[in-house]
Amino acid sequence: MRIGKKPRLSRTRRRRIAHALSYAFLATVGVTMIAPFLWMLLTSLKSPEADVLDLKRLLPDGIHLENYRRVVLELNFARVLLNSVLVTFCVTAGQVLTSSLAAFAFARLKFFARDKIFLGYLGTLMIPGAVTMIPVFLLLRQLGWINSYKALIIPGMFSAYGTFMLRQFFMTIPKEIEEAAVIDGCSTLGIYWHVILPLSKPGLSALAILTFMGSWRSFMWPLIVTHKPEMFTLPVALASFQEMYGVQWTLLMAGSVIMILPMLLVFIVGQRYFIEGIQLGAVKG
């Protein structure tokens, strides 16, 4: 008990001070988070000839879009963006589809060795990607898939994690609804499609968002399986761009802005799903 040792501030005043402190803290952190992005944007708008060494002039001398023009031209941007969008879309859709099918089987159907197989899935959650990377690469090489969309997409379409997460979600859906549907003459596929999926929108969007983010920024795999610039995804293209324009920071920053922008737009539009998705991603039974 501290009463008497020093005059206590009134409760409301204390709370107000705590509040102000919290705000100050949050604002500081917020600025730290945003400032680099602003700097990146400002730099990308400077003229390519601007002496980046001269930091006294932080603001660009007018808005120069040359950097963006050059990045778009020299990065073969249209193609690379198309690759990224395509790969991300296919991986995400494929993963949601295959995972939900399997999760449905694990959660709702009874069949031979179901739980053993599921345990096997769980066990693989901790297998480092580096372990499977080389054999999968060799397999794709055998199939002649290197440097193709197949190599970029197909290995990413299956996920033990997605299956696990959706299974946990499907388990929470009450059995009664399913039973009602069976009485109405619904087939198993019908239950999956008409009952489980519509009820699992949050779970599905969660998985979709996690996969989307992972696939969009995925770097190592596309790096390994592509070698022609027209098959590059955005991160790989940007990394190679860095190699060629290592000291031209205005260009590099323009490239980074371009890489970040689509993700940012998706985030701003679907913010709610992101946050929900993250929380669902860590399913705890």
Binding site: F169, T172, I173, P174, I177, A181, W193, H194, V195, L197, P198, L199, P202, G203, Q279, L280, V283, K284
Partner: peptide, 13 residues
């Protein structure tokens, strides 16, 4: 963590 479950909303999608 709670999932928002929508009972009784059976729709073909």
């Amino acid at each position: 963590m709670k999932h928002s479950l929508q009972f009784g909303r059976l729709r073909v999608r």
